[in-house]
Write a protein that binds this DNA or RNA. Structure first.
Length: 399
DNA sequence: TCTGGGGTCCTAGGACCC
DNA sequence: TCTGGGGTCCTAGGACCC
């Protein structure tokens, strides 16, 4: 019996956050809407039952766009763009705050709907997944004149199930591996289904910019451009040794494989968290001396959030770290590995405080973060030694 | 109108050990 | 008065992704 052809789907929810908001506020359908920023721009209900929305033009602050509707994207705004900058391009666009809990609910709903059809799912965040369809009944069969009719029918059933469960559309790329599936899901958006095989790589993949490859980011794209490579096909023309020479053994070899559409990674259905962190950017840059009380308060709050996140998920961290970003946008991290994993506020704050002592606090601080890593399941922890009454250390250069 | 927050993975040097 | 060498842990930074 020949080995089954691998069929991997990448499913991406269309403009996910924005689409969830449109279910709540259908009157915004077809309008430019961006999601992002803090909680200060909640829609207001008028006496006549209609709603009043904040507009981008009135926004003041340091937020960025999390998602924009397709009409908003037509103005040139996109996720990651600063809201103040986006306001220049589309001042009349509606601005909605991020409601993570709501998106999380819809995320669970769409994943459950997929799982009814195809349970072999790899989570890739709130709005996308990989699905291995290889061993589903009918996946290897053709239908009439369509050699891939079997998997096509399965993919369409998945899309229907998602729409029925959530009212939302998604786009699916269906190919022999994750790398190609990810690219393919983006080729026909929204509400698309793109099926590709290895044979389609030269015609469909090679003309695309190298940035479409998941794993080639802004830095690598810049370096490739300096070497005269902007399209995936140009990358595929270079031999592996040349790429290794410019990008190192690991990344160079990977670039070569990626350009040829080769990727053997399996769909991974279970994974353990590696770290948990909380961070916040201040409305204005704070100084360790002048704003000591405020910084200490936030520091403790972040440590407390990390402690609760760990406890809720049933983990403890043996490595505790901090992150600071200064007014010049330079970012530093410090961490400390403890003999025992911890997940209580006092221990996390104490370790994070130790880390803080190793940072030069001359510049004003823009961002502060606390992180726990080297996670272990809390039930594997030795019995707690009992909260010792400890003197809390002074933070941010006391004395 | 500068640039969020939550993650993963990789690299590289030094310590330390056998 | 060139070089041991491999393995693992710890730390810091950075690229990348959603």
């Amino acid at each position: 019996m020949p080995a089954a052809r691998r069929w991997i789907a990448h499913l991406d929810m269309d403009a996910f956050y924005a689409s969830v908001e449109l279910l709540r506020y259908p009157e915004l359908q077809g309008q430019p809407v961006v999601i992002g920023g803090g909680r200060r721009h909640q829609p207001r209900e008028r006496a006549d039952g209609t709603r009043e929305f904040a507009t981008l033009g009135r926004y003041k602050g340091r937020g960025v766009i999390t998602t924009a509707t397709y009409p908003a994207r037509d103005y040139g705004v996109h996720s990651g763009m600063g809201l103040m900058k986006a306001a220049q391009l589309a001042p009349q666009a509606v601005l909605l705050p991020v409601d993570h809990d709501e998106y999380k609910r819809y995320s669970r709903r769409f994943k459950a709907a997929v799982a009814e059809v195809a349970p072999h799912i790899e989570d890739r965040g709130i709005d996308e997944i990989y699905i291995d369809l290889t061993h589903l009944p009918g996946a290897q069969e053709s239908l009439g004149h369509d050699p891939f009719g079997g998997v096509r029918a399965i993919a369409l059933e998945i899309k229907n199930n998602v729409r029925r469960a959530t009212g939302l559309s998604c786009s699916i790329g269906l190919t022999p591996n994750k790398l190609l599936a990810k690219i393919a899901s983006d080729l026909d958006k929204p509400d698309g289904l793109t099926i590709l095989t290895e044979a389609d790589v030269p015609r469909q993949i090679w003309p695309l910019p190298v940035r479409r490859i998941n794993g080639i980011g802004p830095k690598a794209a810049l370096k490739l451009a300096a070497l005269g490579i902007t399209r995936i096909g140009e990358l595929a023309e270079r031999d592996a040794a040349w790429l290794v020479g410019h990008f190192g053994r690991s990344y160079g070899a990977w670039l070569h494989d990626a350009a040829h559409g080769r990727d053997e990674r399996p769909v991974v259905t279970v994974s353990e968290p590696v770290s948990m962190s909380r961070e916040t950017t201040f409305d204005r840059d704070l100084h360790a001396r002048a704003d000591r009380a405020e910084l200490s308060r936030v520091f403790t709050e972040l440590a407390d959030q990390v402690a609760h996140d760990l406890q809720r998920a049933g983990y403890a961290g043996r490595t505790i770290g901090i992150k600071l970003r200064f007014d010049d946008f330079k970012t530093v991290t410090r961490d400390l590995t403890l003999p025992q994993a911890v997940n209580d506020l006092a221990a996390i704050r104490r370790a994070a405080g130790q880390c803080l002592k190793r940072v030069d606090l001359t510049r004003r601080i823009r961002l502060l973060g606390v992180r726990a890593a080297t996670l272990v399941r809390a039930r594997d922890l030795p019995a707690a030694p009992g909260a010792a009454a400890m003197q809390e250390p002074e933070l941010f250069g006391g004395a």
